[in-house]
Design a protein around this nucleic acid. Structure first.
Lengths: 240, 240
DNA sequence: CGCATAATTGATTCAGCTCAAACCGAGTGG
DNA sequence: CCACTCGGTTTGAGCTGAATCAATTATGCG
């Protein structure tokens, strides 16, 4: 379950940007890695979270679970910080974090993080950038929920997933539809129906493969993106 | 429109917490104040925002305005930072900020802020705390939108407003109902109807006065608050 | 192969929206 | 002092998007 993380890969993480080698080594030296199987909870709402958690592989969803209905907030992917505020300010977690696919998370020791935070303004700035990015994603989500229809949300989301996909080949949905529905604030049944609607506007999902047949049409259908920026990756957010 | 801010009051702002007097003086020295009448826009979505803006009096709403339907994200009140990420990372504003009541905002010079950010980890941490707090509020909002009914959102909001009110006297709604509706993600008509529903569970709004007749009943009705913490003020957020 | 979980489909219900009309209170001016 | 706007609020009737419930079909997976 626990293995040594690869320092060379970790060095590239956005929170280490412009940071001195000495400090980076100290931070990386203090960290441990863990792997989670799909479906496993990483933290549950209300619990504290010790150490700065960073997703290095897989997809993590932040959801509020009340009884048997879940309410999705955000999907984190590789290089995203996992509930940083919960760690840094010793708050209880506001939502639960759960691995949706096999996920690898590294944890930088809490004391070491705190110490780095008092030593390096660069580190502090990098963290803030990440938190700000997550705020931005949350706002996008609120806007979507309020002023877009279920079909529009679905279309826009799939479009974005496809655009974020590395190669130009066939884009693929990384998570089961059930969880996609939760993330988009609708039921699995509605998602299923909306897939047909979206298909009528040039975007198909066959199995888990996303096929954009008529880009102009689907963009038109989804409505103007209420967000200027196209690519959040420059803002150190990789959340979906 | 523009006046000198009072240094003694500003000193108490959470972002100056535990900060050296020298730096605080420099930051305050660089700042200007502005007053906005109700209804005025402070920034519009897509525009850049220069300098760190802090609300010192009044209520500001963050909304996305598309045509004539508006979509509320958050209400800021005294001591909240106004779109800090937009300033710090030179992003275009994701949403518009508009004064809902007569509002006073101070602006700390952008260059001075950046400089302070590279000099003081305490300052950086204070800013991050504020950003984290706003993230938390955004998440609450998403949860509310997804898993509470219109009436529950209304009840919970009024309850919170009343609890935040300083004295134990009659709590008062600081904004017109029209804007409350937007903030809560419903139409003015629905809000009106939901007020009756909420009244049937022990919470009345007469004019702008909030009257809690049966606390237990209304809390029961609004459902369990999906958030552990009661008072966000310890987290340097004053948003509603 | 067969079981469990995920995804679709259909029928029905319901919360909240839309549109339209009535209402109300605070200014304003005759 | 009263009539008259004018914005904000309320009320009513009808519609609709999405949820719910129930049944069926696919899709892994051991």
């Amino acid at each position: 379950m626990s293995t040594r993380p690869d320092p060379l890969v970790l060095r590239q993480l956005p929170i280490f940007d412009r940071l001195g080698d000495h400090l980076v080594r100290k931070l990386i030296g203090s960290c441990s890695a863990r792997q989670y199987r799909a479906g496993t909870f990483i933290v549950r709402a209300g619990e504290p979270l010790h150490g700065l958690h960073i997703v290095v592989r897989g997809i993590v969803d932040l959801t509020h679970v009340a009884g048997d209905d879940e309410c999705g907030v955000l999907l984190l992917s590789a290089r995203d910080l996992l509930l940083p505020a919960t760690t840094l300010f010793r708050e209880p977690a506001l939502v639960s974090a759960r691995a949706l696919t096999t996920t690898r998370v590294i944890t930088i020791d809490g004391a070491t993080t705190q110490q780095a935070l008092t030593q390096s303004t660069v580190f502090a700035t990098n963290l803030m950038k990440a938190v700000s990015g997550q705020w931005r994603m949350a706002v996008r989500n609120i806007l979507d929920l309020n002023c877009r229809s279920a079909a529009q949300r679905l279309g826009a989301f799939l479009l974005r997933i496809a655009d974020l996909q590395p190669g130009s080949g066939a884009a693929v949905l990384p998570i089961p539809k059930r969880h996609l529905a939760i993330r988009l604030g609708m039921t699995a049944e509605t998602l299923s129906r909306m897939l047909q609607v979206v298909a009528n506007h040039g975007l198909y999902l066959r199995g888990r493969t996303i096929i954009i047949r008529d880009r102009a049409a689907i963009e038109e259908f989804c409505g103007p993106d209420p967000y200027p920026e196209k690519d959040e990756r420059t803002l150190d957010v990789f959340a979906l």
